[in-house]
């Protein structure tokens, strides 16, 4: 990193790309195939998806910055364990805070908060980016990947909730009815499949299809 000039602006082109790339061309979920475990299991309601993304983004940014700050003192041999400990400690803090201040949400997310620890996005970014980059760039990288992850979660949750229960639960606004009663009276029914786990996979598959059709350079051969 020695060739980087001190006067580089905080939001240089390179730094902006750190945030925007994960939204599309290197999206952690759909392209790098990371962090799917927790991504799909908490998407039945919008509010869970949003809170999960926020929790992951927070852990990702702080973890990235911490590891980046410590990158010159972490012993090579126990690198992975040190990263796991940092992430696990952050996740415990997130979990304890959720339990204390947003008890209802923590009840719904239950074990999935713990699984942030093994969310491959976090370990992947720590290992691939934070260990070799300065803290500001690492923070941006964490933010970008967190948003990229959240984007997929929110899209999946949107389709699952609207077509599965006809509602949209947004934090602060409560449960909004999206599909009016009159539509049900005409014979419309909620799609029960949307509430079951496999539907998240179908939605992500379609998401990938759309994304890769618009960006043909991403197609695998």
């Amino acid at each position: 990193m020695s060739e980087e000039k001190k006067s580089e602006p905080l939001f240089s082109k390179k730094n902006k790309a750190l945030i925007t790339n994960p939204l599309n061309s290197i999206n952690p979920v759909t392209i790098q195939v990371l962090g799917i475990c927790s991504a799909l299991a908490v998407t039945v309601q919008m509010d869970n998806a949003i809170i999960m993304s926020l929790a992951v983004t927070a852990v990702l940014i702080i973890g990235n910055v911490l590891v980046s700050l410590m990158r010159n003192i972490i012993p090579g041999k126990i690198r992975i364990i040190v990263q796991l400990v940092i992430v696990a400690a952050l996740v415990i803090i997130v979990d304890q805070v959720l339990k204390a201040y947003v008890y209802d949400v923590s009840k719904k997310l239950s074990v999935f908060v713990g699984l942030i620890i093994t969310n491959c996005i976090i370990m992947g970014r720590l290992e691939a980016f934070a260990l070799g980059n300065k803290s500001w760039a690492s923070a941006l990288d964490g933010l970008g990947n967190g948003i990229g992850y959240g984007l997929v979660l929110v899209v999946v949750a949107f389709f699952k909730e609207v077509f599965g229960s006809g509602t949209l639960t947004i934090p602060g606004l409560g449960k909004l009815t999206i599909i009016p009663e009159s539509v049900y009276d005409m014979g419309y029914m909620d799609n029960g499949l949307m509430l079951l786990p496999p539907s998240s996979l179908f939605i992500v598959a379609v998401y990938i299809w759309v994304q890769k059709t618009r960006n043909p350079e991403l197609i695998e051969d």
């Binding site: 309601q45 239950s110 599965g164 909620d190 509430l195």
Partner: peptide, 8 residues
């Protein structure tokens, strides 16, 4: 409940 299918 602890973990019944949400929405069902």
């Amino acid at each position: 409940h602890k973990g019944e299918t949400p929405g069902l």
